[in-house]
Design a protein around this nucleic acid. Structure first.
Length: 666
DNA sequence: TACGTAGCCCCACCGCGACT
DNA sequence: AGTCGCGGTGGGGCTACGTA
């Protein structure tokens, strides 16, 4: 790095790693962008620290910053070097010029190459692609990796994939036509290859023996105890051939087995190489399987053990305690590792593990590889290593939902491909494979949307809105009569904040009451009255101050009036809500021996109270249907379920002591 | 328990184009 | 010129999840 770069290094923001924008000097003499400091303060709230030296920043207030005065040397220097910034292509901090086409900063050495990419795009007369400027911008980073032909193929594949994924009628399937696919390898159908490599006569087998063999043969060669499906073999091809690939397949279609087949092949071959004295490679094959959540570690590990059934000792069993330093020993002993991605990222960070020492990284649920997700931070390290000339592991990425989680599917897919360094997208082909998949997996028989008539004005809602809430609001000078749910929610949140800042006790209390009532109305929209009332009474208990003001008393009287009113309504034996009736009806209709049901709801409270409601229902009791609830561990509420209770509920559900599961998570 | 990562839903807002 | 509908965007508020 030349001296210029070293100086500019100093102008980097500690947080965003770009050139300082509105620089602020912290007490520890480190510099940071104003916006970045605000982010730090907002996100860390209590434990704010300088990103460089970890000195506490607790006494900083967003409102109190003074910008560095213009005569400060950093500001002065920055204003002199307006043409200094990070080069968009090589990421070096140096003198740059904005590109005349896309106005992205380019350094002197990159600008020519960069301009070429625009020329190439202009040359493409292919009107089928119809890329917008935004799309071209997205594609820019990956363009430099690819030849023109590869780039076109890639776009075509991405386009087809997205179109198919969006237009598909059957939501359980994702298609990708072979013609436009970048899976450009062998065109020979798997079945038509007559010659089969005979494992019994030779102790070695090659790549071709796997990719061109019938399932039975692959089973024999890889010593599996099941027949892989033909599409699984086809989708394993890029991986077997040493290419990074994204395997896009619906849940339950055997993504994990595809990865396992690749891993097993490479593993067997590496063992042969280790044994053979003439072999160039002397190290054993190492792979790591990364999953986003803990529960998947066990699940995927079990799937791998099924594939490595003859050599399970190479697979590290899931370990839930701290590994840390011990990882180095484990690395020697085992060949296949399973981790949550966060854990693995931590190992890398702490230098317990070294990415370059792995031959294969399998990334489950790879659609998360985006923005600041831990998977992506690991991939950033991968890219850094790759660009510095290190040998990096190959990637096999698994997902069921690429291109669907973000607002712009195309953008998402391309980002995922770029982030994962994958140019191959493997998905089910229309025709034979599609039919096969349909036969071998459980697909929904039907989906139905049931409509429930809107409830006609409920006396309880009316009483709360028109009487109680209105009265409290008008005392505070709010007009909430015209606000709908969302607006009111936002309004109350803001007013509550303001009141806290101003230390306006009455307004804080009032907003507190209104928020509770509003929440109650939202819950009551879906849930049985008794559960909601129970929740409300518990919630209102927090407003019993020791020395109540006039306004406190007013609010309390109002809410007591309301609760009395509700008690009367309940004693008049109100009808069960239409929605809930329909739910019970549906459960009874669909119920058969040994079947299970899953009810998905929005909040934890929904889950818990719906469970109670269902378990109380006499019609369900008669049929011996009982429900359990499953929520996340979340933060410190009594409604959260700790991990062990989660598995307990799931166990009951599997065993069949509970046939219904009410769970959060949409 | 606190924190930081993420997604989803809803609404307000904006710009655009078609229509009156 | 004004109105309407549409689609995209951004913010607020909620959630789940893993880690320390």
């Amino acid at each position: 790095m030349d001296s210029q770069s070293l100086i500019f290094q100093k102008f980097r923001c500690l947080k965003c790693e770009r050139r300082l924008n509105k620089p602020l000097e912290l007490k520890c003499n480190h510099f940071i962008c104003r916006d970045c400091l605000e982010t730090v303060l907002r996100n860390h709230r209590t434990n704010t620290q300088c990103p460089a030296c970890s000195r506490p920043l607790g006494d900083y207030q967003i409102e109190n910053y003074t910008y560095l005065s213009p005569d400060h040397y950093i500001s002065r220097l920055l204003s002199t070097f307006t043409d200094v910034n990070e080069c968009h292509t090589c990421k070096e901090f140096t003198t740059v010029k904005p590109c005349s086409e896309c106005s992205k900063d380019q350094c002197h050495s990159c600008s020519a190459k960069h301009e070429e990419t625009h020329l190439q795009i202009e040359e493409q007369p292919n009107e089928n692609l119809e890329l917008s400027n935004e799309e071209l911008e997205i594609l820019e980073p990956i363009k430099s990796y690819l030849s023109k032909k590869e780039f076109e193929d890639f776009i075509q594949t991405a386009r087809n994939h997205v179109d198919r994924a969006i237009l598909k009628q059957d939501k359980t399937m994702v298609y990708i036509p072979r013609s436009g696919s970048t899976v450009s390898v062998e065109k020979t159908p798997i079945w038509s290859e007559p010659e089969i490599y005979d494992w019994s006569k030779h102790e070695r087998f090659s790549l071709d023996d796997i990719i061109n063999s019938k399932p039975e043969r692959v089973r024999q060669l890889l010593r599996l105890d099941f027949n892989p499906r033909p599409y699984q073999i086809r989708m394993a091809r890029p991986g077997l051939a040493g290419k990074n690939s994204i395997i896009c397949l619906q849940t339950g279609a055997g993504k994990t087995f595809i990865a396992a087949i690749v891993a097993k092949f490479l593993h067997i071959r590496s063992l042969q190489n280790v044994i053979s004295p003439s072999a160039s490679s002397t190290s054993r094959f190492k792979a790591v399987f990364l999953v986003p959540i803990k529960a998947l570690v066990t699940q995927q590990c079990a799937a791998f053990r099924q594939v490595f059934i003859d050599q399970p000792d190479f697979i590290l069993k899931p370990i839930d305690n701290q590994v840390g330093e011990r990882f180095k020993n484990l690395y020697q002993q085992f060949d296949i590792f399973f981790f949550t991605v966060q854990k693995f990222a931590n190992f890398l960070e702490a230098k317990h593990a070294d990415l370059t020492k792995f031959d294969l990284v399998i990334i489950d649920e790879c659609h998360h590889c985006y923005d600041n997700h831990p998977i992506n931070s690991m991939m950033r390290q991968y890219h850094r290593l790759k660009s510095s000339g290190y040998t990096v592991p190959r990637i096999i990425a698994l997902t069921a939902s690429v291109g669907t989680n973000k607002k712009n599917a195309f953008d998402h897919l391309v980002h995922i491909c770029a982030n994962l360094d994958c140019l191959e997208i493997c998905a089910i082909e229309t025709g034979l494979e599609e039919a096969e998949l349909r036969n071998s997996t459980n697909t929904p028989l039907s989906d139905t949307i049931l409509s429930v008539p809107k409830e006609i004005s409920d006396p309880i809602v009316k009483a709360l809105k028109d009487d109680v809430m209105k009265a409290i609001a008008s005392r505070l000078g709010y007009d909430i009569s015209t606000m709908d749910n969302q607006k009111l929610e936002n309004f109350l949140a803001i007013e509550h904040d303001n009141a806290c800042k101003k230390n306006d006790r009455d307004a804080v209390i009032g907003c507190g009451y209104l928020k509770k009532f509003h929440r109650f109305l939202i819950y009551y929209d879906d849930l049985p009255l008794d559960e909601c009332i129970k929740w409300l009474i518990e919630g209102l208990a927090e407003f019993t101050a020791s020395n109540p003001t006039q306004f406190d008393k007013f609010c309390r009287i109002k809410s007591e009036e309301f609760l009395k009113r509700v008690a009367i309504e309940i004693s008049n034996s109100m009808e069960v809500k239409a929605k809930l009736k329909k739910l019970v009806e549906m459960i009874i209709n669909l119920h058969t021996v040994n079947c299970r049901g899953l009810v998905l709801v929005r909040t934890k409270f929904h889950a818990v109270s719906l469970e109670t409601f269902l378990n109380k229902n006499s019609d369900l009791k008669k049929r011996q249907i009982s429900a359990g609830h499953l929520t996340g561990q979340g933060s410190a509420e009594e409604l959260s379920l700790p991990g062990n209770q989660q598995s307990k509920v799931l166990d009951e559900f599997r065993k069949g002591t509970k046939q219904l599961l009410v769970a959060t998570g949409e």
